[in-house]
Simulated scan of single mutants.
Amino acid sequence: MWNIPNLLTMLRIVLIPVFVVVFYIEAHWAPYVAAAIFGAAALTDWLDGYLARLWEQTSPLGAFLDPVADKLMVAVALVLLVQYDPRTLLALPAIVIIGREITVSALREWMAEIGARAKVAVSMTGKIKTTAQMISIVLLILRETVFGPWVYELGVVLLYVAAVLTLWSMMLYLRAAWPSLSGQIDRTGRD
């Protein structure tokens, strides 16, 4: 249970309140530190899974905590960003992303209950979505710092790319699960 991949996942959860506090500090350095904290958390998301597979240290705790940590960090960051910039421009993709995460989590839980979890495993589209989402959030946290307004604008564009990929990957998951959801396949997985 106390292996490096699980500790990295737990670190990501511990960083959430630190991220929130730094996000609200009104100092010229705060956006850089907040972006670094979020970026480090995003890197540990990739690193913990990679190390768990490499060192064969996968565990039920890690399998449970990893997606929870990811979704918490992203949801908290999106809520803070929308609070900072409460325009529809930012609120709309944030709602899509958070709503999709709730929907897909519920779908995966239900599919696991009926023994069909593999049908809604993470796809390549989901991984690309996550990458675009993490980069966009880092850029949005930086706001209009010394790099200029183009950083924030690029963050908004990437957030929309992530939102579109979010909807697309959700549709792929729902399509894969549709036979079970619609009753075309009974709970044992037979036609």
Rank of each mutant, 00 (worst) to 15 (best):
P67W: 11
G148A: 06
W110P: 01
Q83S: 11
P93L: 05
T103E: 01
E113F: 01
S105Y: 03
Q83F: 11
T131D: 01
A112L: 03
D66G: 10
A52Q: 03
V122T: 14
G62D: 07
A69K: 08
I97E: 00
L78K: 09
I102H: 01
L159M: 14
G115A: 04
Q184L: 13
V79H: 05
Y160T: 11
Q133N: 05
V74Q: 11
A112V: 06
S182I: 01
R87H: 12
D66K: 09
K129D: 06
A106C: 13
D48V: 02
S123K: 04
R100W: 07
K129I: 11
D186L: 11
Q184Y: 09
R53N: 02
L78A: 07
R175F: 03
L107E: 04
K71C: 06
W110L: 01
S180P: 00
S59N: 05
I102A: 12
M124L: 14
E109H: 13
A69I: 10
R143S: 15
V96M: 15
I185L: 15
T130K: 00
I98T: 05
S105K: 00
P60L: 07
E56H: 14
A75D: 04
Y50H: 13
V96Y: 07
G126Q: 07
P67R: 09
V138I: 15
W46P: 02
G148T: 08
L172P: 00
K71D: 04
V68Y: 11
L90N: 07
K119T: 01
T188L: 09
T103N: 03
G183N: 11
S105E: 03
G49L: 06
D85W: 14
A176N: 15
L47K: 02
A121D: 14
M111C: 08
G49D: 10
P93W: 05
L72G: 00
R117K: 14
I135C: 00
T88S: 10
A163D: 09
L81T: 11
P149V: 13
V122I: 11
A162Q: 08
Y152Q: 13
